[in-house]
Amino acid sequence: MEDTMNDQVAGELAAQGYSYIAAPDFGVPNATDSDFARLADEWNRLETDNYLQENATFRERRFGRFAYQPSTQTVVQLKHTPYFQAAGTNTYAGGIHRVVAPLTEQFAKDPLLSDLIKQDFDCFPTRSFDKSEWWYVACHLFRIIGRDGEEGEPTPEGVHRDDINYGAMHLMDRVNATGGLSRIHAEDHSIAAELCLKNRLDTLFWADEQVLHSVTPIRPSDTQRSAVRDILILGYTHSPNILEEEGTS
C-alpha cells in the first residue's frame, strides 16, 4: 500500500502541487492504530501560543527541529531554538523570534515520529535531489480551539506559503468542530481545491513552491463545549549543510 500511496502523492504533487490521502489509505510500515493513538495523546500536553494578537487563546503548540538524510534514513534531532519566519512570509507573527515550547522528550524520541518523517519524505517527488544530502524538518504540533464567542484560527496569517519545499499535514483529532476547511490556492489567491480533514490521519501534502494554502476557522457544533482540531505538520526544506550549520556534524 505504501508504494502505491507514495507514487500517487509524488505524481499529484508534481502535477498540481497538492495531494490528499484519506486515513484508510495512509500507512506507515508496521504502525498500528494504537501507535498513532499514543502519538495523538501528546496534544493534551501542548502549551499556550503566546504570540496571538488581541489576547487570543485559540492556539496551543509545540515545535521541534530535525535533520533527515534519505540515503541512510537517518533522523537527527536538532537543538531547540526559537521559531522564526520572515515578516514577508507571515504577516501575522513574522519578523520575530517566537519562543515556542519544545517537543517533549517522549514525543521527540517516539519511533513512530521518526518513521513518519521517513514515510512522508518518500511521498515527495525528489528524484532530482542527491539522496545523500540532508533535509531540515520542522515539526509543528498545533491544537486549535474554537469556543462560543472565539473562533479557532488555524491560519491567522491567511493565505500563505511556509518557505519550505514540501509539507505534510496530518489530522490527529477533531472534536465538536465545524469549519476547518483546508484550501489550496493559486498565485492570485483563488481557491484551487478545498477539503476537510475529518478523521485521524487524513493527510494533505503540498509543494510549497507551487501553491499557497490556508485553513478556515473552526467553531463548536455544541456551543456548550469547545471545538478542537489537532494537527501535526512536518515541513521539509532541502538543506545539504544543515549539520555543519548546526555544529553537529
Rank of each mutant, 00 (worst) to 15 (best):
Y51W: 15
S34I: 14
R127S: 15
Y92A: 01
F66Q: 01
L39T: 01
R45G: 00
L116K: 12
A67T: 10
Y83R: 05
A87M: 12
V28N: 04
W135T: 11
G95I: 11
G149L: 08
Y51G: 07
E47V: 01
W134Y: 12
F121I: 03
R127H: 14
D120R: 13
S34Q: 15
D120P: 07
Y92G: 06
S128E: 14
D41S: 11
P125E: 13
D49L: 00
G149N: 06
R143C: 07
V100A: 05
C139T: 12
D49A: 05
S34C: 10
A101E: 08
A101T: 08
D130T: 06
A56K: 02
V100E: 02
T91L: 07
Q106C: 05
T126N: 12
K131A: 14
A138V: 04
P82S: 07
R127L: 09
F142L: 03
G149S: 01
D122W: 12
K131Q: 13
D33C: 13
S132M: 10
S114K: 13
A40T: 10
L78W: 02
V75G: 00
D35Y: 08
Y83W: 04
E54G: 00
R127Q: 13
F124A: 07
D110E: 10
F63R: 03
H140F: 12
A108K: 05
V137M: 07
T104Q: 06
F121C: 06
Q77K: 09
N50A: 04
L112Q: 12
P82N: 05
S128P: 00
D25P: 14
L112Y: 14
C123A: 14
V137F: 15
R127N: 14
G64Y: 11
S34V: 14
L103I: 00
R127V: 06
G146K: 07
P102F: 02
N90M: 11
D115A: 15
T48M: 08
G95Q: 09
F36V: 08
P102Y: 02
G94A: 10
S71W: 06
V100Q: 03
S71K: 12
G64I: 05
F107K: 02
G64S: 05
P82W: 04
F129T: 09
F36A: 13
T91A: 06
F26Y: 15
H97C: 11
I117T: 09
Y136C: 05
R59P: 03
V100H: 01
